[in-house]
Every structure is written in structure tokens, then in C-alpha cells.
Nucleic acid binder design. Structure first.
Length: 284
DNA sequence: CACCATGTTCCTTG
DNA sequence: CCAAGGAACATGGT
């Protein structure tokens, strides 16, 4: 369920649930998930430690824990990969089929479930190095954004997925931000004009902020075994209201919400891109 | 059976 | 050292 908005919502939900809770036992069901930590190494660090804070950096969850024996807080890094979910459930409930790691908190168990096992939960923090600015931060300026875009020969859609440029954008919101900015996903990054950079800078922020705002209103059930948590941009059928939030992603051949033209789907860097051929011609 | 899927990391090439 | 492209990772849905 990743991309910045989903991770942000998850962090906001987990923070009050985990704060002050003490880890009684660590169960690693899939060793790859904690790499390069070892099972015993992770257990020795976490057992007896208490959650102090949950925050987010890019698409990573950052858990800060206090240990009885250690002075400095322990940092635990989580990433959902493509299919990761994190939630609390009753200790008496059976773990899901693809539970990767579970933390015994007493009455509840913190579960990291991950069908495809692309996610991570580790004390190894190297992944936080070399990340670009947070999109909502002051460090993400139009000037630096434009300057970085001018250094690249990649298509702008592909470049937006580069977490060194700016963090948090994934395959869905890359298409959405470009659509709102009226920029063709195929334009070479270095040919983005100052005006386009300014517009794209704004639509990136808008698209992400709106998704967070909408996710905050959803009745997510992280304590239960719902299917409804997580992917709030994939509205299947039931609770309407958020299917329409996406303008182009996964809407191939559907009419453009602006002009009615058929939305097109193309492949860039082996990933799908959706855009309106009429609204995103990319002249200034 | 074939192809597709919200992401990152590793390897190769230039 | 860096930029860019592609494969790998692993499972399930259509």
C-alpha cells in the first residue's frame, strides 16, 4: 500500500496505538524481511523496549523505541514494499498467511503482513541515506527542483520516481501530478521549463496533500482484519467517494475528466503511465 | 499459460 | 564517482 500518503496515514494511526507499548517477544516469520539484521540480533535489541514515537521519512516508517538497558533510543525502519500492511490484532487471533514479523505487545500483537515480501523491518538505517527532500518541506523549492530536472535526460515521469529528486512519489501519483500540471509524461526532464517546474512542484504537493486529507477521513480499521485498510486510492466498489479521486491512473480508455478524450496507457521504464493525450501536450 | 501489480536494490554499461 | 536501463525479488489476481 505504499506511496507517501498511505504511509503518512498509517503512521498517524499507529502512533497512538503503539506509544508506550513494550515489546515482549519478537517473532520473525520471514528472515528476508529483517535483513541485514539477524533474528537473534533483532530480538536482543527489541525485547523489553518500548515504543516512543512513530514517524515517516519518504515512504519509510521510523519507529523510535526506548530500551531499559540502552541510553540512546533504538530506531527501527519499516517499509511496506508493494503489499505490506501493519496493524494490531488480538493476541488470540491467528496470524495471517503472509505474516513477515510479529511483535508481542501483551494483549495485542503488532503484525507486519506482506504478501510479496518486498517490504522491510530492520534496524539497519542505510536506506535513509541519499534521499531527496520531503515534498512538503521548505527544502523542496521550485528552484532546486527545476535545477535537478535540468540535469536529467530521463522522461519526466520516470524522473519523478527517483527518490533523490524528491521523495514520496510513486507510480500512481506521478501520473496524477503530471496530469494536473498539463505536462506530457514523455517530455525529457531537462526540457521542463521554469513555468512547468513551478506548476509541477505545486501539483505534486496538491496531489499528495489531498490524498492524505482524504485518507484521514476514512474509517480505517487497523485493529481488525479488514481488507479495507491501506489502499484508499483503489476504491473497488463499496464506500464510494474515493474511486473518483484519481483522474488518470488505471483509467485507460476512459474519458478525460477535463476534455473527454480517451485516457492513454503507455509503458515507461517497464511501468505503466496514464495520461490525457489532449490535456498533456506540454507546450508551455 | 501469460501478463499485470502501490517499490527498492543490485548489476551492468557507458 | 555518476547516470541510466534493466533484471531481480515473490505472490496473487485476471
Amino acid at each position: 500500500m505504499p506511496e507517501l500518503p498511505e504511509v503518512e496515514i498509517l503512521v498517524q494511526h499507529l502512533q497512538p496505538l503503539l506509544q508506550t507499548r513494550t515489546i515482549r517477544a519478537v517473532r520473525v516469520h520471514r528472515e528476508k524481511t529483517i535483513r541485514p539484521d539477524s533474528i537473534r540480533g533483532l530480538q536482543s535489541k527489541l525485547v523489553g523496549a518500548s515504543f516512543q514515537n512513530v514517524s515517516r521519512r519518504a515512504k519509510f516508517l521510523v519507529f523510535s523505541l526506548a530500551s531499559a538497558r540502552k541510553q540512546n533510543p533504538i530506531l527501527l525502519l519499516g517499509h511496506l514494499g508493494m503489499t505490506g500492511r501493519m496493524y494490531l490484532q488480538s493476541t488470540s487471533s491467528p496470524l495471517p498467511k503472509h505474516a513477515a514479523v510479529s511483535l508481542d505487545l501483551g494483549r495485542h500483537v503488532f503484525v507486519f503482513e506482506d504478501t510479496r515480501y518486498f517490504g522491510r523491518l530492520t534496524t539497519h538505517l542505510a536506506s535513509l541515506e541519499n534521499l531527496g527532500p520531503e515534498p512538503m518541506s521548505d527544502a523542496f523549492t521550485v528552484e532546486s527542483f527545476h535545477a535537478d530536472l535540468r540535469k536529467s535526460s530521463q522522461a519526466i515521469k520516470v524522473k519523478l520516481l527517483d527518490q533523490k529528486l524528491v521523495v514520496g512519489i510513486g507510480n500512481i501519483y506521478a501520473s496524477e501530478a503530471l496530469f494536473r500540471a498539463g505536462i506530457s509524461p514523455r517530455i525529457m526532464s531537462r526540457r521542463i521549463t521554469r513555468k512547468q517546474a513551478q506548476r509541477l512542484h505545486q501539483t505534486i504537493r496538491d496531489v499528495l496533500a489531498e490524498a492524505i486529507a482524504m485518507g484521514s477521513t476514512l474509517p480505517l480499521d487497523f485493529a481488525g482484519s479488514k481488507k479495507r485498510d491501506g489502499l484508499f486510492y483503489y476504491g473497488s466498489s463499496a464506500s464510494s467517494g474515493y474511486e473518483e479521486r484519481l483522474s488518470v491512473y488505471d483509467r485507460e480508455a476512459a474519458p478525460c475528466v477535463n476534455c473527454g478524450a480517451a485516457i492513454r496507457k503507455i509503458t515507461q521504464a517497464a511501468r505503466s503511465t496514464y495520461f490525457c493525450p489532449d490535456c498533456q501536450k506540454s507546450r508551455v
